[in-house]
Design a protein around this nucleic acid. Structure first.
Lengths: 132, 132
DNA sequence: CTTTTTGCAAACCCTTTGCAAGACA
DNA sequence: TGTCTTGCAAAGGGTTTGCAAAAAG
């Protein structure tokens, strides 16, 4: 069950790092497809999944939307623009004690939390201001 | 664009309040379907959506899973059991200042945040303890 | 009588899966 | 060689939508 180094795997990982900005699996697929039309969609989904399971990349689960993949792996939060859908990093300190507090409040054994912000990105704020 | 009071609407809302425990739209549909086989799935999805848009019920977006609906409408957080999938309330104080902090950190105009916990519910903890 | 809502089925998005062929170690 | 991975197409879960008929105001 060891991971093999295939051509596809490194192409996909490279493309994710090139795109940099939290692409969906499908966006990675589209980008890869331009140069390598033979690489299938399923391979991209499978490979991104494996890479994130192995901790080599991050997976950002978005409420009500496709998962996004992150070339960075350290813990941080994300914000999604409700106008254009883009997703950006939110560089604020990770909540240290909420898991413990939530555990006491719920009786659950907490393994993780995810905090997602929704809002309007700077570009869309501009657009709204000039349109109005 | 005013909301009309239809039979289906009140049946669906009543059923949600009876179920109480964060059902998915499909679970509400199944429950409604028992007594009212003529009510269609699309009606349940549409009605729950409208009710939550109107603020009469809550919608809980679950990472990587079907949306759930909540008969309670005040702001609170949720935890999902990674074993059995159940979703419970987490009655901890709502984070008051994170939106502002996130706005400063990201340049976004933040409209909301959602915090979801993942963990193991008391029942599954039992099961794991006795099985191991 | 006008507008919303319903029920149905089909479409939709995102993702996973079965399988035979191909690539890695 | 033995096992993992690929590519394809089909299936899957969750949800939305087009449309004509029915119901609300």
């Amino acid at each position: 069950m060891t991971s093999r180094n295939t051509v596809q795997r490194s192409i996909i990982e490279d493309e994710l790092r090139r795109l940099a900005n939290h692409p969906t699996a499908d966006e990675v697929y589209e980008a890869v497809h331009v140069e390598h039309p033979s690489i299938g969609r399923a391979t991209v989904y499978r490979t991104l999944g494996k890479l994130s399971d192995e901790g080599k990349i991050g997976r950002v689960r978005i409420n009500n939307g496709a998962d996004r993949f992150d070339h960075q792996t350290f813990a941080h939060y994300h914000v999604r623009c409700t106008c254009c859908g883009r997703v950006d990093d939110v560089m604020i300190p990770v909540l240290g004690d909420v898991d413990e507090v939530a555990a006491r409040a719920s009786g659950y054994q907490i393994t993780s939390h995810s905090l997602q912000f929704d809002g309007i990105c700077p570009a869309c704020q501009e657009d709204l201001a000039t349109t109005a």
